[in-house]
Design a protein around this nucleic acid. Structure first.
Lengths: 250, 250
DNA sequence: CAGTGGTCTAGACCACAGC
DNA sequence: CTGTGGTCTAGACCACTGG
C-alpha cells in the first residue's frame, strides 16, 4: 500500500514532467517543445519513450505534433484537473483503472422513488449504497464525491474496493462473471451540495459536474450505478473524434 | 494530389489485413490473435510495427491486449469512417444539425493569453469572435450561450449562420474545402456568468455545463472553436456504449 | 515454468517544412 | 540544405498469466 508495487514507467514520468513544464510556462502556448531527440537526451531516455510520453498529450490536445515543424504547445492547462478522455468504452476502462475508490460508508437501502428513477428498478428493491471518494492515482485530494449503488448480490465488491485500484466495472466482470453489455452515462451541470463540498474541501454551491454511469447486462438489467460529483477545478472531460484513416483512404 | 504521393505505411497495411482477417472469421470473436512476435514473423515486419498496427484496433475496441494472456478479438465490426466514435460521433453531428446558432455580435480579436490558451494559437494571432445563442429546433428559449472563434479566413461562415441550421462543422467542410480531421471536445463544470445568465434568463451563478469543441485539420491546426455554456436545466449529455458481441470479455 | 503483452534502447531511413 | 516528426528494425528485460 505505501509503496507502489510496480514502478511507474518512464514515459509516464516524462509525460508528467512535460505537463508541469507546460503549465509552468517553461514551454509557453504557441511555442515549440524541444525536438524529440533533444528531449530524449535531456531526460535520459530513448526517442521511442519520448514519443510514448507525448502521444497521450497529443491525444488530449495539450500538444500537436507537426511533421517537419515540431511539437506545438496547444494549451497550458492547470495540472490540477484530472483530464479524462472518455470517448470510447476503452477510455472509460482506462479511466476507471487509473482512479481508485475510497469507500467512506456503506448502507443497505430500499429504493425510494428517486433512487428507482435513477437506477431504473422497481421501488422498494433492496440495494447497497456505497459512499466514496474517487482518487486519481498519485493525487492526494479526491477528485470526486461518489455514490455507488450495487445489487446486494454483488456487494462483496466493496471489500475488494478497499485499497484496490480495480474498477467496479472490472470487478463485476471478474469476480461475478457478469458481462457488462452496455454502459450508459449522463452528464449534467450541478451545484456542489453542502455536505459533499465540505468533504471535498471546496466551496458550497460551487460548480460541479454530475456524471452518472449505469452498467447493464445484455438483457438490460442494471447491475450497478455510480453517481459522481466532480468539483469543476479537479476534473475535465476530454473526448475526441478523429476521422479514421483505416480503410477510408480518400 | 489525386493519388497518394506517399506509400501506405506498413502498420496501416497490416492493420487492414487484421481487420479483414477478423471480419472474415479467420480470427473469430473471442479467440486470440497470434502473439505479436509471430505476427511480426508472419507479415515480415518488426514487433514494433505490429504494435503500431494493433494499437488503433485496440483503441476502437476491435481487439483487447491483455498482458500475460494475449490479444483477444472483441468484435468483428465494419470499419467505421469515424473511428473511436461508435454512436457518439453520430450523436454529435445529429446534435449540431438539430440546433441553430443565432449570432448576436461579431468582433475581431487578437488572441490574448486566455484566448491563445483556449484555442491553442500563438498569442496575438487575429481571430474572429462570434457571440451567439444556440437554439434547439422547435424551442423558443436558447439552450446555450455560445462563443465561436474562427480564423479570419473562415469568418464568412458567419453570414451563412444567420437563420441557418447547418453546423459550423459542416460549414467549414462545405464552403471552405477544409477537411475536419479531429473534433476535440472538453466538458467541465462552471457557474453561469451574470451576463450570460441575464441573456439566457436563468439565475446568475447557477449551474452550467461548459462544453468546448475544437475543430482541427489533419495537421493539428485549429480551424475553429466553439465555447458553449449550457444552463443545467436545459441540457444533459447522454452517452452509451454497448459491447458489440458478448462473451468476448473473458 | 514458458509465453504473453508492456516497456525500453540504439540505432536507421523517410517525407516534408523552412531557409 | 538542415532539422523535424513519422516510420521501422533488431534486439532486450520486465511483470504478469497460466499450467
Amino acid at each position: 500500500m505505501t509503496g507502489k508495487t510496480t514502478r511507474e514507467p518512464r514515459y509516464a514520468w516524462l509525460r508528467e514532467c512535460l505537463v508541469k513544464d507546460i503549465a509552468s510556462g517553461k514551454y509557453p502556448v504557441g511555442s515549440l517543445l524541444p525536438p524529440e531527440f533533444q528531449l530524449a537526451e535531456t531526460y535520459g531516455v530513448s526517442r521511442h519513450t519520448v514519443r510514448e510520453a507525448t502521444r497521450k498529450l497529443a491525444d488530449i490536445g495539450l500538444i500537436s505534433r507537426r511533421p517537419g515543424i515540431g511539437t506545438v504547445v496547444c494549451a497550458a492547462r492547470d495540472p490540477n484537473p484530472y483530464v479524462a478522455g472518455l470517448g470510447t468504452a476503452k477510455d472509460l476502462f482506462d479511466y476507471t483503472n487509473a482512479t481508485r475508490l475510497e469507500v467512506l460508508a456503506r448502507r443497505e437501502v430500499a429504493a425510494d422513488a428517486a433512487l428507482s428513477g435513477l437506477i431504473g428498478c422497481p421501488p422498494g428493491e433492496a440495494w447497497v449504497e456505497l459512499t466514496a471518494f474517487r482518487h486519481a492515482t498519485g493525487q492526494v485530494a479526491p477528485i470526486s464525491f461518489t455514490k455507488v449503488y450495487l445489487r446486494p448480490e454483488f456487494a462483496a465488491i466493496e471489500e475488494r474496493l478497499r485499497g484496490n485500484h480495480i474498477s467496479i466495472y472490472a470487478m463485476l466482470e471478474r469476480f461475478h462473471g457478469q458481462t457488462i453489455h452496455t454502459v450508459r452515462q449522463e452528464i449534467e451541470a450541478a451545484l456542489m451540495p453542502a455536505q459533499a463540498a465540505r468533504l471535498l474541501g471546496v466551496g458550497a454551491r460551487s460548480a460541479a459536474l454530475l456524471m452518472r454511469r449505469a452498467y447493464l447486462d445484455a438483457s438490460g438489467r442494471v447491475l450497478g450505478v455510480s453517481d459522481n460529483l466532480y468539483p469543476s477545478e479537479r476534473f475535465r472531460l476530454v473526448t475526441s473524434w478523429s476521422r479514421g484513416d483505416a480503410g477510408a483512404a480518400d
